[in-house]
Design a protein around this nucleic acid. Sequence first.
RNA 1: GUGGCUGUAGUUCAGCUGGUUAGAAUGUCGGAUUGUGAUUCCGAAGGUCGGGGGUUCGAGUCCCCUCAGCCACCCCA
Length: 445
Amino acid sequence: MSDRITPRTLKGFRDYPPEKMIPREQLVEIARRVYRSFGFRPMDTPALEHLEILTGKGSDETDKQLYRFEDHGGRSVGLRFDLTVPLARFVAQHIQDLGTPFKRYQIANVWRGENTQRGRYREFMQCDFDTIGTTSTTADIETVLVINALLEAIGFEQFTIRVNNRQVLTGLLEKLDLVDQSTAVLRALDKLPKIGAEKVAAELTSTAGATPQQADAVLQLSELTGSNAEILAQLEPLVADNETGKRGLDQLTELTEAVAAAQVPAERLKLDLSIARGLDYYTGMVVETFLDELPGIGSVCSGGRYDNLAELYSKQRHPGVGASLGLDRLLAALEELDRLADIQTSAQVFLPLFIAKRRNDYLHLATQLRAAGLDVELYPEAKKLGKQLQYADRRGFQVAVIIGEDEFAANEAQLKNLTTGESQTVALDDEALALIAEIRPLLGS
RNA sequence: GUGGCUGUAGUUCAGCUGGUUAGAAUGUCGGAUUGUGAUUCCGAAGGUCGGGGGUUCGAGUCCCCUCAGCCACCCCA
């Protein structure tokens, strides 16, 4: 019997026991609700795609991380490593039927064979929302509003949405004749908060081939500080003689005004010209979101505008804008801030199986309560009442409905508030209406 | 992918320079208490010391490989 297989999971892949899954499902539920409230519609794509769909982009980095293999029919296939590439394929294939603007959300797992760290796994969930087929700045603005609504709905009040516009940087690079090196410049700039201006300047000269003067010129953008209005004012002379840069400035101005008009507290939106985002397909607005209480955890919601989503798969141009909620980071943050309620049950109402012979009566009552919209768990064994209540207590049930022979005889139920320990006696009519009415107020919060 | 740290009951950890049947706390289960849940008391189960190989009279302890976790680089959610 020693040749039994050791139970284990692959590196970077995780099991989700109920105590992890319950807050996870709650977050996903919140995200869905917020996305829908802005009119985004659900969609999904297969986990597995033809390899050339995924490798099309050709970046070495994604190529290294891609899970790839041959399927049973000898096809080369790969697991999706993000939701953007499958969206591009989907749009190229179906946009005629969908019409534009196409607003979608997609919450699904993706896989990357990279090295693991806390909060970084090989299988993880992305919660993306995008608006495809419009270049309107209104869609950019709405993206910021969705991020704000998302974090509010999760229960955060202190967070900062940092916004930049790629065209500002692109304009500057045009002036400096560095456009060809934009990817290297972006990656260097992205490290600014981590390694500091000096090292970024060094990387700009070594990797991006900039002269020290050019590096300084690029870095001066990120040194602009002050209120949003002050930053915009300082930016104006820097982009004055470049069309691209001016467009970026105009869009940023429009965005700050619109977001304020939409009642987002002013301190939450911060123009930050050092926000770069390493991905080179962004062409307009870029956005990252930080929790003020835990800035070190990184951006919990990031995205931006891209000019041509499906260029690899279609002759048509499909501009779009969107962002992705970092579910795992957010869960890690909530855990660290001790904001995860210790709920280990799906139901709130606990029904002990007190008298074994009365099982069918309990089942009947549970059915009545469920019909009234209450979630009820009936204990499956007629163990001692103390044990059953202990089970309910440990799992975070809010109320227990206790009915023994005395109560059955008197047509009563004992309604116990498991949080306070108090009990009350409630008459048990044929439809349990009085009981239902008494349970409801106990399930607040 | 590169480099560093770590790995002992479900969980958090003890285990001195290698030395007989690997401990504690907590949790789990049972009982004291066959009608009331975080208290108390009693009892039980639970470990091939991550896995494999080697050195040794003897390895949880030393060496090698491997797997997993964490950290940095890289990249990013």
